[in-house]
């Protein structure tokens, strides 16, 4: 793997992870919940959501990830590129635990591990 390919790969994992964590943070922001419970319901929830900087950080990350992905695929065949997905799954699992205190029961670890393995097998051959 050349230096450039590595950094494109790293950037893709980085922005995918930031994007997912930002979306999660925006989705559970207490301000939105208060607005929704204050009688506004779903409309108030979504109106609050568009004012969350985390939501826009997530959207920005998605766009950045998409551009890096295109650049990555011009240098690496798609079959090798798909392996990226498995790394993302594991990294987001670990950071979900760190940032949102999500419990990682043995069943969850096995389930997430099987999905990550399956995505790698689909991509690797």
């Amino acid at each position: 793997m050349s230096n450039l390919v590595f950094w494109l790969w790293f950037g893709n994992v980085f922005f995918d992870t930031i994007g997912q964590l930002a979306f999660k943070a925006a989705a559970i922001a207490p301000e939105n919940k208060l607005a929704a419970e204050g009688g506004g319901g779903l409309v108030a929830y979504w109106c609050g959501l568009v004012r969350r900087p985390a939501l826009w950080l997530g959207i920005f990350s998605y766009v950045a990830e998409f551009l890096l992905w295109l650049a990555f695929l011009t240098l690496v065949p798609l079959s090798e590129g798909v392996l990226l997905g498995s790394v993302n799954i594991i990294v987001i699992m670990i950071l979900g635990r760190l940032f949102f205190h999500e419990s990682l029961t043995p069943l969850r670890l096995i389930g997430i591990g099987l999905v990550a393995l399956g995505v790698a097998v689909v991509g690797a051959f």
Partner: peptide, 25 residues
């Protein structure tokens, strides 16, 4: 092809396990 089907099988198995874990939670 066969590897893709095997990968699909692993993904489905993982999701069944995750569904069970939610039930347990």
């Amino acid at each position: 092809d066969l590897p893709r089907l095997a990968g699909a099988g692993l993904i489905i198995a993982g999701i069944i396990v995750l569904a069970f874990s939610e039930k347990q939670q």
